[in-house]
Design a protein around this nucleic acid. Sequence first.
RNA 1: GCCUCUGUAGCUCAGUUGGUAGAGCAGUGGACUGAAAAUCCACGUGUCGUUGGUUCGAUUCCGACCGGAGGCA
Length: 319
Amino acid sequence: MDALADTRPRAEKIIAVLGPTATGKTELTFGLCKAFGGEMVGADSMQVYRGLPVGTAAPRPEECPAVPRHLIGVLPPEIPFSVADYVANAAGIIAHLHSIGKTPVLCGGTGLYIESLVNGLDFAEVGMPQNARVQMEAEWDEAGAAEMLRRLAALDPEHAAKLHLNDKKRILNALWQTREQRATYAERAARSRPAEKPYDALLIGVDARDRALLYKRIEARVNGMLAGGLLDEAKTVYEHRKAYKTAAQAIGYKEFFPYFAGGAPLDACAEKLKQATRNYAKRQLTWFRRMKDVHWLFLEDGGLEETASALTEAFLRGE
RNA sequence: GCCUCUGUAGCUCAGUUGGUAGAGCAGUGGACUGAAAAUCCACGUGUCGUUGGUUCGAUUCCGACCGGAGGCA
């Protein structure tokens, strides 16, 4: 009885290190894994892809050979990937880690993935396949934005009211899902959300108090990527851009397409890349700042590893 | 030295037939349930280079000066 009470809650614990790009999440995660017998589980929509380590800043085995990593560099770039795939895969890995007594430490910058996983969202129903997407696009071109939004409003007025006329991606998706599943957005959302959260999660966020510091680190990181062979990687992506449906969207590659296509100067593309990374970091922050129960650590304060370790220790002990 | 063009938001520029000005980008904030490193929304006062003149009123017209670009010597 005692043994059962001792092990059961522990099996549901997960740790997540999150925050904007270039804040040192990976290092911090390695540190925690080593200290607490954890394994790293990627929470990043682009680092899942194989063969793109430079541009996606994917953690490499040689950086920390002792720590096993999951969902990083495992998928051929031709394969599309989505939240549903992420949650399904990550949940499986986490269950396995728990079964062998390891603590999963999520690490990544994709807010949607982390939140969906932590909340245990269930994406059992089918997602929109490629050919349906093409069809919906055609319907959009033929009917126009206002009419498409009206069609959605006829089926799901509540959700349609929340979408902006320009938000084509969401309108098309919502319309397709609503027709396909004969259920409104709210109904689908309720269905996908479990009654109880599946994990006991410790969320550790890393940020800079001064935005300028974050931007300086981004600048340095991009320069490092360029020195580390980013251009070769970008060239590969450029040449396969049609086949790499999801991967070609990654920041770090598409900014160089104008250069490969001929014309655009290289340094202008590099500038554009830094810009895009800054914009991205800001979007990540608005996502993460909204999340509840994040323990924020700030780069300026120093001692991140110590603070994170202390939090983790208390968390694993059961507070 | 002379001639032409030019000086407006952090950047690139528009504009006011004279009533003190607005786009894109950047920046900031926000949204986000199957492409999320994606997609979308909101937010624009700045001695309109300086200084005189004309005018009820000048950033707008005229003059001078200062800065920038080009041309002729």
